[in-house]
Design a protein around this nucleic acid. Structure first.
Length: 508
RNA sequence: GGCGGUGUAGCUCAGAUGGUUAGAGCAUGCGGCUCAUAUCCGCAGUGUCCGGGGUUCAAUUCCCUGCACCGCCA
């Protein structure tokens, strides 16, 4: 049985227009999925859409259509984007699917039977003109924080999840799984929230109808998080296909934005503990992007459409930028200058130009053939040793979502190769008819082949182009990483000649 | 108000169980090469390592305190 890896993104709210934030999480998951695949894992990569709730109900109503139809119209915004971004998800879940409804109802029932869900009253402040609920604390001097009008107190019958009971179990779990919350700077946040005491959680609503009804009490609709989080179970076949489910659960990683950490790191494991399913292994919370130094917001009109970025700069360039520019987990700023700078500096000048000069030299000086080296000196060994060392570092970083550092390792190799070419000057060796030119270009060819693999999870299309330029025709996505980590004389490759720049400079 | 974090070169950041010249990338200046996408390589820098106090033979690194900013919670 092959090794299994299960990674997820959140399910995105169907009313949202996909932006850079959605793209960020999903690409992050895709990078890991691709990486794990070339490492030999059988990967389940799940994403999807959250399609229930009052806002969807209202949007559909004003459009004069059924909420499901509304969702059907909107879902393509996400699926189209994932296609455009070359995202290789293996599953896609919509919370309006029948299979999901069954799972939510099943879990709800069981947890209720166990006594962890009970019927009570949910009290909140409701601002009629704004049509929004607020908690006592959100009110400003007893008035609506948005419009300053006095809200009404509404009491609604609601089911509650006995979260209060899970404080200690959660603390125990956190204590035993110090790497449950990643990056570790977020761990304390979660632990102190739990230590602060947990209140029971309202998990149903009667104020709207668009959702999953509670069996036997259909006036009640399962409320957002209980419905949404359960998708991670539905997506891999729970409970009908327990064989698949059992092979992928516990989930290796839920990738999320830092805004929904509490739901994933506190509520979700609590639900699972109550039901009796092991919590996931890791929840990784990443940061937020600002745009040209400003918070992204509809009112500022600076929300970025990923399709536009792709059109202007290219898919791989976009994917690359997001993880090269900012350590994964921290906040970052997306700006035109920054992405152009990265493309020109890292990709065109360093990596792209390295590829060009290497390929041209192999074509010009060796007639496009890589042969077994006859002699080898210290400089040649230095390159091999460092490439090996950096591959090892890269692997370690990838294991812990250290994408930023993993890319640094790849660029360290690029830098070593540029220096190597400079110091060994193959064009001189060619003139002098020195046999060592074969050694130098052999090393360069091999290192570049490996670097392309290191870049592959981030830039699948460009990496393939580089492989092709190196005379390798097989699809890079089907490689076994372990087989590529060695220097070797290629047995069967196409003749190597010139290539057009893989990463053209952006002028202006 | 509580808890946690951050404050290091022009910019973005790394770093040391305390100890010789505190680092990287980018930006800047100078030099070199010509295989290459006017690309690459080398050299040169500059820093009161937030302020104050303490521990120590020795602190930017540990402790206390102040200031500033950020995150989570109330």
């Amino acid at each position: 049985m092959s090794k299994k890896y299960y990674i997820t993104t959140p399910i995105y709210y169907i009313n949202d227009i996909p932006h850079i934030g959605h793209a960020y999480t999903t690409i992050a998951a895709d990078i890991m999925a691709r990486y794990k695949r070339i490492c030999g894992y059988d990967v389940f990569f799940l994403t999807g859409t959250d399609e229930h709730g009052q806002k969807v109900e209202k949007a559909a109503e004003s459009a004069g259509i059924h909420p499901k139809e509304h969702a059907d119209r909107m879902v393509h915004r996400f699926t189209d984007l994932w296609q455009a971004l070359n995202v290789t998800n293996t599953g896609f879940i919509r919370t309006t699917e029948e299979r999901h409804k069954k799972v939510v109802q099943h879990i709800f029932d069981k947890v209720k039977e166990k006594g962890d869900i009970y019927l009570g009253d949910y009290e909140d402040w409701y601002c009629v003109p704004c049509e929004t609920y607020f908690t006592e604390l959100q009110l400003k001097e007893g008035r609506c924080p948005d419009c300053s009008r006095p809200p009404e107190k509404l009491k609604e019958e609601s089911y509650f999840f006995r979260l209060s009971k899970y404080g200690q179990p959660l603390l125990d779990f956190l204590e035993q799984h110090r790497d449950f919350v990643l990056p570790d700077i977020r761990y304390n946040e979660v632990a102190s929230f739990v230590k602060g005491g947990l209140r029971d959680l309202s998990v149903s609503r009667t104020s709207f109808q668009w959702g999953i009804p509670i069996p036997g009490h259909e006036r009640h609709i399962v409320y957002v998080w209980f419905d949404a989080l359960t998708n991670y179970l539905t997506g891999i076949g729970f409970p009908d296909d327990m064989e698949t489910f059992g092979s992928f659960w516990p989930c290796d990683a839920h990738l999320i934005g830092k805004d929904i950490l509490r739901f994933h790191a506190v509520y979700w494991p609590a639900f699972l503990l109550s039901y009796g399913i092991e919590p996931p292994k890791h929840v990784f919370a990443h940061g937020w992007w600002t745009i040209e130094g400003q918070k992204m917001s509809k009112s500022l009109g600076n929300v970025i459409d990923p399709h536009d970025v792709i059109k202007t700069y290219g898919v791989d360039e976009f994917r690359f930028f997001l993880f090269r520019e900012v350590p994964f987990g921290l906040d970052g700023d997306f700006s035109k200058d920054a992405i152009v700078h990265r493309i020109n500096g890292d990709l065109a000048n360093d990596f792209g130009n390295l590829t060009s000069r290497s390929v041209t030299m192999i074509g010009k000086f060796l007639k496009g053939r890589i042969e077994e080296p006859e002699i080898r000196i210290g400089a040649d060994e230095y390159v091999q040793e460092n490439v090996m060392k950096l591959i090892g570092q890269y692997e370690k970083e990838m294991e812990v979502f250290g994408y930023h550092k993993a890319l640094q390792c790849a660029f360290e190799i690029v830098s070593i190769l540029n220096k190597y070419i400079d110091s060994e000057a193959p064009w001189k060796l060619a003139k002098e008819e020195d046999r060592r030119i074969k050694t130098v270009l052999y090393n360069i060819w091999n290192s570049l082949r490996i670097v392309a693999v290191l870049f592959y999870p981030f830039m699948p299309v460009r990496s393939q182009q580089i492989w092709n330029a190196l005379g390798i025709e097989k699809p890079i996505e089907s490689v076994i990483f372990n087989d590529e980590k060695h220097f070797r004389t290629p047995a069967d490759i196409a003749a190597i000649d010139k290539i057009a720049p893989v990463f053209p400079r952006i002028e202006g």
